[in-house]
Design a protein around this nucleic acid. Sequence first.
DNA 1: ATGAAAGCGCTAACAA
DNA 2: TTGTTAGCGCTTTCAT
Lengths: 348, 348
Amino acid sequence: MRVSLKDVAQLAGVSIKTVSNVVNHYEHVTPAMRERVQRAIDELGYRPNLTARNLRKGRTGIIALAVPELGNPYFAELAGEVIDAAAEHELTVLLDHTRGEREREVLVSQGFRARVIDGLILSPLELEPEDLSARTDDVPLVLLGEREYALPYPHIAIDNVAAARSAVRHLIRLGRTRIAFLGARTDSPNRPAQLRLQGWREELKAAGLEGGERLAAPTGGWDRGDGAEGMARLLDSGVRPDAVFAYNDLVAVGAMRVLHERGLRVPWDVAVVGFDDVPESRYGAVTLTTISPDKKAIARLAVSSLVSSLERAAAQRVNGNGDAPPEQQPSVFAPFRLLERESTLGRR
Amino acid sequence: MRVSLKDVAQLAGVSIKTVSNVVNHYEHVTPAMRERVQRAIDELGYRPNLTARNLRKGRTGIIALAVPELGNPYFAELAGEVIDAAAEHELTVLLDHTRGEREREVLVSQGFRARVIDGLILSPLELEPEDLSARTDDVPLVLLGEREYALPYPHIAIDNVAAARSAVRHLIRLGRTRIAFLGARTDSPNRPAQLRLQGWREELKAAGLEGGERLAAPTGGWDRGDGAEGMARLLDSGVRPDAVFAYNDLVAVGAMRVLHERGLRVPWDVAVVGFDDVPESRYGAVTLTTISPDKKAIARLAVSSLVSSLERAAAQRVNGNGDAPPEQQPSVFAPFRLLERESTLGRR
DNA sequence: ATGAAAGCGCTAACAA
DNA sequence: TTGTTAGCGCTTTCAT
């Protein structure tokens, strides 16, 4: 039998409100009364029912974070940072993964499962702009990651084009001339990988190295196995790059494995740059040069952006001002760095 | 302004109950009525308030999973499996990480924050038995992982001693005689790593290779960096193992990096076995032999165990049977396998 | 087949 | 300082 405020009040011989005051550390309670009530609380082992409190307050203190795959260390690490950032705002995080499937991303964005959440942070992969415009759910939403939507939702990411360019520039400075991009997706101009591919193209062009579209190698996905397959396919097709810029670290790790199997030495025969700075890139026989997004900043920005949306929504509810201007803050870029490690060590 | 059942009822000109019936797909509603109500629902964009429903039903459909570190791919993968397993029971997972700190583990086990959860799955690292006995929170709890507590909580894990023994046995069969254990913790007989260390000892003893306590090397933690440090320290101390059984894959990865830096070749000079079968162990210049726990099974067992605790708790609430026998199911072992890869390839 | 009304446990006006 | 009471939005007997 669950014990409620009423039970405690009864035992202590006071009103329900007094107990509530004690529980919520309301100031104006005499020490004696506080003492008496506390005794009853302890005796009965009373614990407040958060659900009731939530209902009453109109908020739950829970936000959801949906990422493609928790098994991807980048997202796992990011999730950890979001959990910590949320905790600073006294928010708890409900984590979901979409497997990067459009259908699941749509469901999440519609709040289908999101049971009781105040807000949502979503890192989409396949979600299309029209899915987002068709959204009926009204819980505040913050977008994360490479995909760009011309829609009034806050969006936190690093400057993917600039980051890709700095990676490629680094390879060019090393004297590499046949720089492959591994992880291309050519489906549509707005698909994932598009911005990094664009950065690769721009930088090559700026260096007068263009014309190497054969070097834009697709992969089935962006896990280690996809990187290995893509790299093998590229080599099998007769292309012989002297550098690889991979969509992310996992793809790079898979590529490096294949290079190793084929007797190609990193960095001497082929230099490799990744993206994400996942922990494992700092280990292995050859440590990996990579673009390191400031994950903590991304998490903090995402959470604080969501928090202000939450506050705006709450204020609106109070004012009943249903037609207030959206006043969405614009997309924000988080910082990134290029970390040079063994996979690009030394000039040719 | 949020729209409620009442608003819909008003617009449709029916009672609140009828709308509820439609929303909940209650059978006995005439098609015409269903149609009419649905129209009102659509027009108003009504969405049920889950919090109110939860309050009424006395359950939330949310369970929490607390792991030490999401950045550890083992836990990230496990979390993904738990989320999927929970979804099959129509449960949502609230994820938390404790950083393996006792204090945070205690807080989580006490249900400090999430009182909106129906149940909890906890993978403790530093939590002590007395912390658990002192637990006052009454939400059903399932324990995960290596730590053993002689307490009536369901506990899901693999047989760590048997797994460790099979890893060491594998190394012995390969002709190795100076087999180190990397990641020992000697603090207390119940601390993490204890069971794997015990398996290592037992198997060495069975093979007549005992007496090598110098080969039980401690590490500060169980991440890659800790493995690297521990390995370096072991080598610096003059010990020269011909095999390393690491507490987990991350420690093994760190150790392999150091071995590589020192010019010791894996597997020829030193064979290495890890534990967990994290994805990165299948890549790298030398793939890693490891103990592979059946993570999907662990997740499923944990969730189904929790679900039955939930059902028992619900039944008890109905019967008001506060003194029902606990009837906890005993601890359950999930399967594991030894995966042989390059890091232990070939006899001496 | 549909409606009326009680109440889940809590907070917050308002009263005393 | 403490008590009374309404009501958050929903489900659920019990009527009709």
